[in-house]
């Protein structure tokens, strides 16, 4: 299994909330590899993949943030047209529901990496493997 742990942080929909979380992560010398913010009129959820998940969770909890860790799939695909749609088809064909996805920060010329949150991670992982999609491990991400 090559699942990757994602950190989610609950934030209020007020100015500087995301900045507050990022400042804290930066002060701990933790690098963020992927980041997204889902927001509603009331609240937001910051989701991220970092190079030291345990330390980031510990620091955020100590600062009273509501934090949760979820297993997600991280993939790397060629940066050419039609690749993402192929991934979605692979998952759809195995009846895996996609909750959300977002890209890693920065990319190489040839490939692009995504975080994918699905309802059935085991099934998704096998399906992606069968379909020849490269999945990243936490080690891969730490070395990015």
């Amino acid at each position: 299994m090559s699942n990757v742990r994602q950190i989610s942080v609950f934030v209020d929909n007020k100015p500087n909330q995301l900045a507050g979380v990022m400042k804290m992560i930066k002060e701990c010398k933790i690098n963020v590899r992927a980041l997204s913010l889902a927001d509603t009129s009331d609240f937001g959820i910051v989701r991220m993949i970092v190079n030291d998940t345990d330390k980031a969770v510990e620091k955020l909890k100590a600062a009273s943030y509501a934090v949760t860790v979820t297993e997600v799939v991280a993939i790397s695909i060629p940066d050419t047209p039609g690749q993402l749609s192929r991934v979605l088809d692979i998952l759809g064909n195995r009846n895996v529901n996609l909750e959300y996805l977002y890209t890693f920060l920065g990319k190489s010329d040839r490939s692009v990496s995504f975080v994918i949150r699905v309802d059935d991670i085991e099934n998704a992982s096998v399906a992606l493997n069968d379909g020849g999609i490269i999945q990243l491990t936490e080690n891969d991400i730490a070395e990015m």
């Binding site: 989610s8 509603t40 959820i45 989701r47 509501a66």
Partner: peptide
């Protein structure tokens, strides 16, 4: 105040809790 034990990464779960 959000109870950290009830927090989920999915927006719809938080809205369901509300």
């Amino acid at each position: 105040e959000m109870n950290p034990d009830k927090f989920s990464d999915k927006v719809k779960d938080v809205q369901k809790e509300e």
